[in-house]
Design a protein around this nucleic acid. Structure first.
Length: 260
DNA sequence: TGACTTGTTCAAAT
DNA sequence: GATTTGAACAAGTC
């Protein structure tokens, strides 16, 4: 699922494949995924335009246009990007397809259609308007402690809340808390300052390493409690048994004997 | 067949 | 008013 590391990997993919080429035509098959624009104005802005650079904030990807603002992509749960050279076959299913002048294509697909496409003038304004917290990798320890102070909700739901910290999703939150040996339901205001600092350090550590390996899960197995998210499996660290609980409406796996 | 999955949003509760 | 909780959405998988 696209959390911060996956989106960072998409950002690089755009950098490597889609910049500095004139857009000839776009096709949009799911207009309902547009956030603040219409098919007509999306076409109007993108066609004959050029992508020049990229920016990521949390799980949001912004692609700067040579003329006029940014294209914003949010990947929801199943969003993906595919570049196909002029002789390659682009994926059959797509939400947005960009056809460059040389015939190569760039496709945004999203089978469950929980993603979003928007045109934004200025990404800082967009981030502010929608109330996103600071990006998890840009965040300082002081900011982190301030953002979490006096919160009573469970640590897992707090670090997953994009309005508090942008970028952490369900699976990475489980990994972070497992590594810190903290129970996901612990109310934030009952955790020691030291524990919160540990969560901060571990968040950075895991996300940085995930970014380094392009979010390749096979190379990140050592951070997670499980390779397969399934209750009842033995804990990799102690003699405990993996527990399953719905926390904040999300399926959560943790070891009740070493996370407390 | 239907329960389960996730990120986000909105409504309701505290 | 701010914060927290929970349901809803969409569609693929098993």
């Amino acid at each position: 699922m696209p959390e911060l590391p996956e989106v960072e990997s998409f950002r690089r993919y755009v950098e490597d494949h889609a910049l500095h080429q004139k857009i000839q035509e776009i096709k949009l098959s799911k207009p309902q995924m547009l956030l603040n624009t219409t098919v007509i104005s999306l076409k109007d802005v993108l066609e004959s335009n050029t992508f020049v650079s990229t920016h990521r904030h949390g799980k949001l990807l912004f692609i700067k246009l040579k003329e006029q603002g940014f294209l914003m992509l949010h990947f929801g749960m199943t969003g993906e990007l595919f570049y196909a050279g002029k002789n390659d076959l682009p994926p059959e299913n797509y939400v947005l397809r960009i056809i460059f002048h040389d015939g190569s294509t760039f496709s945004f697909s999203d089978s469950r259609m929980l993603g979003k496409i928007a045109l934004v003038e200025n990404y800082n304004d967009f981030i502010k308007q929608r109330g996103y917290g600071p990006d998890a990798l840009q965040l300082t320890e002081k900011e982190f402690l301030t953002l979490l102070s006096k919160r009573k909700a469970a640590i897992k739901t707090v670090i997953m809340n994009q309005k508090i910290i942008a970028g952490i999703g369900n699976e990475f939150s489980d990994a972070i808390l497992f590594q810190c040996r903290i129970h996901p339901l612990s109310p934030v205001n009952q955790l020691k300052n030291e524990q919160l600092k540990e969560v901060f350090d571990m968040t950075k550590k895991i996300l940085k390493e995930a970014v380094k390996v392009n979010a390749d899960r096979d190379k990140l197995k050592h951070f997670f409690l499980l390779n397969q998210r399934k209750a009842g499996l033995p804990c990799v660290r102690c003699k405990g048994q993996t527990a399953f609980k719905t926390i904040g409406g999300r399926s959560s796996y943790f070891c009740p004997s070493c996370q407390n």
